[in-house]
Every structure is written in structure tokens, then in C-alpha cells.
Simulated scan of single mutants.
Amino acid sequence: MNLSLGFITILFLIIFPGVIFRRLYFYGEFSKEFRSNYNLITLIAISSIPGVILLIITSLLYNSFDTINLDFIIDYFKEIKSNETKPDDDTIYPITLNEIFASKIAPFTGLLYSISIASGLVLGRAVRKSRIDTKFKLLRFRNYWFYLFNGHHTSFKKLKGIQPGSNKHLFTRADILIGTGSDSTLYSGIVVDYELKENDCSSLNKIMLQSARRYKTKFGRMLSKDIPGHLLIVDCENMSNINLTYVSEKRVGLLETKLPGIIPNIIGTTLILLIPLFIFEIEKIDWLLYEWYFDLPWYAMILSYLLVVEVLTLLNPFRETDDGYEWNGWVYYVIKVIAILFTSVLIYWLS
């Protein structure tokens, strides 16, 4: 099969980088979305979109520190193909093939594929870590079950209010009805993992349940039974419906953590460690302000240390009350700033 030079160029500069980007963008739980329900032609077509964008970005970036003329390189290879030999040195191409490859082609393609790999690795994870995909449907992955099983669907615009946003999701309990009619069986348990169908990332293949129970109707009575074992794998091929229950706990606020108590300790320790610097002059500290400090009278030196205390305590956004910790209000910061300015002016006047 004869491949044209144009097709080879598009293949290496657009399609391959686009395929690499998409393969790395869809990672982990979303890896099957890379080629779900896509034939080869469709996969190439949708990979061309990020491929073109990556080529443009690479060209702009590469041309910022070097120049590459793709038309010149393509014409060069056309000349080689038409003559079936390398152009002579006295032709319009004074540069050899090895020189073109080493100085232009290799650096440019290396940068192109590096950007493809880096952007694919970073962007997919950045979208998921920032959870921006729960805010904008355009960025949402097609693996809808990931959002449902992990409780991230509560950030969807149409599903807000199902579970209070201030609560922390612990786990999801699923009730799965397999089959229909009298042959149906209900399995219930905690969802620990799941598997999607190979060519359809929106359909469940299997669900792994922990602490599973089985419910079945016999002789008009609902019978339940604990299923022994650590993990039950439910085949979802004949799943009729699924009911999800979210177990959560109240999310601990920042004021209820240890941080409000740690910050004053850090500030206090820092102030203690700074005391020797205010008593003994360190010759290795060659700061004009530090040298000026030791020329001050003793009472101005004390005020200077108090000024440092005011500045460092300004960094503590919390205040302790009888009921715990609260955020410092704007009045606190205004008073602190006034005290710092007043102390600074007083030190300058006393000097």
C-alpha cells in the first residue's frame, strides 16, 4: 500500500499526538472512554481535534526560540520522492537530510510528542481533581457510574439537594434487582468497585459488593439471607434496576480541626527563636535595617520587638473563645494595622 507524503505528515503531526493525548487524558476509571463505541475511522477523526490544537501550540512554542518551515521540509521530501534520490548539494536545498532531521524534525516532533504526553497526563487529572467536570457538562466524563457511586453527582446542577453539600460521603449502598418477575433476586451491599462493559463505558458489567445480602420472594414471602464471604460480584447483564443509598457524615469545618490551635504555637515558637536576634548583634546578618536597629535606644528596641509580635500575630486568622475558635473579623485587622503603623512611627520618632 502506497502512502502519500501528506498522509504520513498528518499521521505523525496530528493523528498520533491526538491519539496519545486522548489515551492519557482518559485514565483510571475513565480509560474505557478512549475508544468506547468508536470504530477506527471515528477514533482517528476525534483524535484529530486535539491533534490540531497540539500542533498549533507546539508551533507557537517552538517558533518562540527557533524557526521551522514545514512547507520547506515537505517540499524537500517531495523532491526526494520525485527524484528517488537525495537532492544534489548544488540544488536549491543546500542542507542535507541528516541536518534537517537533527536540527529541525527531531526537536520539533520531540517537543510535539512531549507536549501531547504532558498535557494528556495533566489535563485529565486536573479536571477530575478540581471537580470542574461536575460543574460543566461539556467536561464531564461519560462514565456516569463513577459520579453516582462516589457521591459526586450532588454537584451536578440538576441533582443538587439530593445530599447536603456540607456532608462528607463515606460509602454507597446499592440494592440491585437482577431478573424480572418471580425469578428476580435482589442483592444489597456496600459498593466497593465496579466494572464497565468493554465497548460501552456507560453500561455496567459487574458490581462488587461488601457485606452483601440476598432477597428473594418464595411462596409469597420475602426471604433474606446473608451471603458469606468478603466480596460478592454481581453480574449486571440482566439488571432491572438499581437503588443507591448514600451514607455520609458531617464534614468537619476548618475551625473544628487542630489548625487554629497549631498556628498560635508556631507564631509563639518563632517569636521565642527570634529573641536572640534582638539581643545579640549577628555580624553575618548584613542588613541595613538590622544595623540601624542596634543603634536605637533600649526602649525603642523593645518597641521594635513588639512591632514584630504585632506583624506575626496578624497572620493568625483565628481567635479562641469559650466555645472554641472563631474567625477574626475585619475590626481585628483594622486595629492591628493601626497598632503596627503607630508603633512604626513611634520607633522612628524615638530613633
Rank of each mutant, 00 (worst) to 15 (best):
M1Y: 12
M1A: 14
S4W: 04
L5F: 04
I8W: 11
I8Q: 11
L11H: 05
I15E: 01
F16R: 05
G18T: 02
V19M: 13
F21L: 11
F21R: 08
R23G: 05
E29L: 00
F30K: 06
F30M: 08
S36D: 08
S36V: 00
N37S: 14
I49H: 06
I49W: 00
I49P: 04
G51Q: 07
V52S: 07
L55N: 08
T58K: 05
L60P: 09
L60K: 12
L61F: 06
N63H: 03
D66A: 15
D66Q: 14
T67N: 14
T67W: 09
I68E: 03
D71Q: 12
F72Q: 08
I74G: 05
I74P: 06
K81E: 13
T85Y: 11
P87Q: 08
I100V: 14
A102V: 15
K104T: 10
K104S: 14
K104Q: 15
G110L: 08
L111A: 10
L111C: 07
Y113T: 04
S116W: 05
I117H: 05
A118D: 00
S119L: 13
L121N: 11
R125S: 10
R125W: 04
A126C: 05
A126M: 13
V127T: 09
K129N: 11
S130H: 05
T134Q: 10
L138S: 14
Y147T: 09
L148A: 09
F149R: 04
N150P: 00
H153I: 14
H153Y: 13
H153Q: 13
S155I: 04
F156Q: 01
F156T: 01
I162A: 11
K168E: 15
H169T: 09
I178L: 07
S184P: 01
L186W: 04
V192R: 11
V192T: 15
L196R: 03
D200P: 02
D200Q: 03
S203Y: 02
N205V: 02
M208R: 11
L209C: 00
L209F: 06
A212G: 07
A212S: 11
Y215L: 13
T217Y: 09
F219E: 15
F219S: 15
L223A: 12
K225M: 15
H230W: 08
N238K: 13
N243R: 12
L244M: 04
V247N: 11
K250G: 07
T257W: 00
L259D: 01
P260N: 06
G261R: 05
G261V: 08
I262S: 11
I263R: 08
N265I: 13
I267P: 02
T269G: 15
T270K: 02
L271N: 01
L274Q: 01
L277P: 01
E281A: 10
I282C: 13
K284H: 15
K284N: 15
E291C: 06
W292P: 01
F294V: 07
Y299F: 12
I302W: 08
S304I: 00
V308E: 00
V309H: 05
E310F: 07
E310G: 06
E310Y: 01
V311N: 03
F318I: 09
D322V: 14
D323C: 10
Y325R: 12
Y325D: 12
W327P: 10
N328K: 15
I335T: 06
K336R: 13
K336D: 03
I338F: 12
V345K: 04
L346I: 07
